[in-house]
Write a protein that binds this DNA or RNA. Structure first.
Lengths: 111, 111
DNA sequence: TCGCATACCTAATTTTATGATGTATATAAG
DNA sequence: CTTATATACATCATAAAATTAGGTATGCGA
């Protein structure tokens, strides 16, 4: 329960993962898992709709390609708009993070 | 659009705000606003249902009290369970944050 | 008395999340 | 050759949550 936060981080996480190279659903799932040491466990039912929404929104773009393993994969890449949106998400994240840090600071008198 | 993240941070944010002292809806709204320098702009329609859900869940507890200004306010306080849940949320947040930091690291090769 | 800030709230619609499935191929094990 | 597993995509139905819009009431200053 209460995985809302994990779900909400999906958009910025996908944008971040695609920053340097294109990727595909199944791999994104594994990357996120390993990046978080298992804490973030996305399901396919979470990710695929998110990818579709994001493509619809225009922040990512997909194309089917056959991998060296001869498997069909839907590769996603950032669009320019997506690159800008990543910056927005990043600032949003850091601003919320800053608020948390202030609240979690050991000092008692503040708050 | 895409305020999902802000909404999702509501639960941990409320728990964090109540860590040291009790508070009430209207004030929580202002605190969050000022803590984030305006980035996080919650609406009342976001917050009140969240508070009710959280009370229902047992992480916070409420009581009506008349303030010095002679106004009725519904004060919320953390329960023991809420205190534990805050720790869980904290770890969750930091683990996701860690993943982002790795992804946003200036190094190109690491991805 | 008018407006604004304070202080709470819900109802209706839209959007998301979740758990359960469904499809198909490559590859390794038996 | 058959079975199991990993890879790879997806949707459907239900449950939960978010968003827009509205509603009530008081204290206080102009």
């Amino acid at each position: 329960m209460s995985k809302t936060l994990i779900a909400a981080s999906a958009r910025p996480m996908v944008l971040s993962l695609l920053l340097n190279e294109e990727s595909y659903g199944y791999r994104i799932l594994q990357d996120v898992m390993s990046l978080s040491g298992g804490t973030i466990d996305w399901s396919e039912a979470l990710l695929y709709p998110v990818l579709h929404r994001m493509e619809n929104e225009g922040v990512i773009r997909s194309r089917w390609r056959i991998s060296e393993e001869k498997r069909m994969r839907k590769y996603y890449a950032l669009t320019d708009f997506g690159r800008r949106e990543l910056e927005v998400e990043k600032e949003r994240w850091l601003s919320i993070h800053g608020a948390f840090l202030r609240l979690w600071a050991p000092a008692e008198g503040s708050e």
